[in-house]
Amino acid sequence: MMIMKLASRVSMIKPSPTLVITAKAGALRAEGRDIIDFGAGEPDFNTPDHIKMAAIHAVESNFTRYTPVGGIDELKDAIIGKLKRDNYLSYRRSEIIVSCGAKHTLFNLSQALFDEGDEVIIPSPYWVSYPDIVLLTGARPVIVETREENGFKMTPAELEAAITKNSKAVIINSPSNPTGCVYSKEELAALAEVVLHHQLIVVSDDIYEKIIYDDFPFWNITAVNPSLKDLTVVVNGISKAYAMTGWRIGYAAAPEFLIAAMAKIQSQSTSNPSSISQKAAVEALTGDQQIIAGMVAEFQKRRDYVVSTLESFDGISCLEPQGAFYVFPNVESLYGLRCGNKKILDSTTLAEYLLDEAEVAVVPGIAFGNDRHIRISYATSMALIEKGLERIRMALKRLS
Rank of each mutant, 00 (worst) to 15 (best):
243 A>F: 04
229 K>N: 00
253 A>D: 07
234 V>I: 15
238 I>S: 03
235 V>C: 09
178 P>I: 08
163 I>E: 06
158 E>K: 02
225 N>D: 14
245 T>W: 13
161 A>D: 12
244 M>C: 15
214 D>I: 05
219 W>T: 10
164 T>V: 09
177 N>K: 11
221 I>Q: 07
175 P>N: 11
164 T>I: 07
167 S>I: 03
251 Y>Q: 08
198 H>A: 02
175 P>H: 08
246 G>H: 13
213 Y>F: 15
223 A>F: 02
229 K>S: 00
247 W>A: 15
224 V>F: 05
219 W>E: 08
224 V>H: 07
229 K>A: 02
217 P>C: 14
225 N>I: 12
159 L>D: 03
173 N>Q: 13
185 K>T: 06
237 G>A: 15
223 A>Y: 00
200 L>I: 01
170 V>Y: 11
201 I>Q: 04
219 W>K: 09
252 A>M: 04
164 T>C: 09
173 N>E: 11
209 E>P: 00
219 W>R: 09
241 A>L: 11
246 G>M: 00
181 C>R: 13
247 W>H: 14
169 A>S: 14
179 T>I: 11
226 P>V: 06
213 Y>L: 12
239 S>Y: 02
242 Y>D: 09
202 V>I: 09
217 P>A: 12
203 V>K: 03
218 F>L: 15
215 D>S: 15
232 T>V: 08
204 S>K: 02
158 E>V: 00
174 S>K: 04
248 R>M: 14
244 M>T: 12
212 I>R: 13
179 T>S: 15
180 G>F: 12
242 Y>K: 13
168 K>E: 02
182 V>R: 08
195 V>P: 00
248 R>K: 15
190 A>K: 06
172 I>L: 01
204 S>C: 05
196 L>W: 01
226 P>D: 05
211 I>S: 07
214 D>A: 11
167 S>C: 09
249 I>D: 05
227 S>K: 11
192 A>M: 00
161 A>G: 14
190 A>V: 03
211 I>R: 07
200 L>S: 01
222 T>R: 08
246 G>T: 06
183 Y>E: 01
203 V>T: 08
238 I>P: 08
166 N>K: 12
178 P>C: 04
212 I>P: 11
235 V>Q: 07
